[in-house]
Design a protein around this nucleic acid. Sequence first.
DNA 1: CTAAGGCTTCGAGCGCGCTTGAAAGCAAGC
DNA 2: GCTTGCTTTCAAGCGCGCTCGAAGCCTTAG
Lengths: 157, 157
Amino acid sequence: MATQALIERILAASDGPSSSAIDALHELLDDATIEASAMPKSVAEAARLVGLSTHTLRYYEQEGLVRPARNASGYREYSAFDLRRLVFLTRMRLSGMTMTDLKRYTLLVEQGPSTIPDRRRIMLDQQDRITRQIRELGLALETTEYKIRVYDGHPEG
Amino acid sequence: MATQALIERILAASDGPSSSAIDALHELLDDATIEASAMPKSVAEAARLVGLSTHTLRYYEQEGLVRPARNASGYREYSAFDLRRLVFLTRMRLSGMTMTDLKRYTLLVEQGPSTIPDRRRIMLDQQDRITRQIRELGLALETTEYKIRVYDGHPEG
DNA sequence: CTAAGGCTTCGAGCGCGCTTGAAAGCAAGC
DNA sequence: GCTTGCTTTCAAGCGCGCTCGAAGCCTTAG
């Protein structure tokens, strides 16, 4: 029962875009709100779009994770490409990938296609890590469900 | 397809114990390896059983999360009860619950049944948090799957 | 009796990922 | 020209959750 509930929640979470449309989403822009205008975004706009602070965006640049262009006055200009990368970075950070690993990965990306095998390996490792993490979360979720059931007077049993 | 794979992974993760047996697991001991012997465990044994360091166990005690008894020489003795609590704590920590929240919760537990509504609330909040986190991990997992597919030469479409 | 290896307490240190603050430049409205 | 509010760089600080090291006590084997 708890397991079933978990699955239903996962389904609800990733259902909207039917499985085959997911690829298109990734390819196109990773996030519908980004492609709308092709105009580069200021650091504040970019921050708002990806849900980070301007400070964090500057920090990411300093760490070499993203390289927005600059306008005549030295202001940052985040292109759709930069925003896509930021979405990727955010997703990976939220899933627990470390800054160190993201730096390594980004470096490989900038070195061109010859590093694809290395990048693939990193993604496979992340995939494993995330899968383990989901397993752990499943256990924790069941534990909260159990406690709540007990607090509600374990109506079954 | 990615979604289906995700669900299958979740299923594989929490399948062994059939849904209805999960409650029993929680009630009995949370972890089969613990109940075997009723003898209290030393800090090192307890650490090994729950997968933490002895340093961390002492730290948790210092923070009031667990209260193992002491033997004549002042050594810690972790009972089955203490170990159960440690498993709970570990599970919650791994799911991202903060030390602060765990301290609050533990304090409520030690204040007796009158705090059950508060505890229930905390568990409901955690349940929400974990569910959101699983959603995020789902996105990240799809992203790694997408990248890997691309690196493999996107054999489909 | 001694040596090895557990255990104790205490306080300081650390790694990660930001976060904040200071000082100053640029843009747009009044 | 002045003000308001964005932007820049740089360096220092911080909160969390451990993690480590020192100094000394207890227990068991030889």
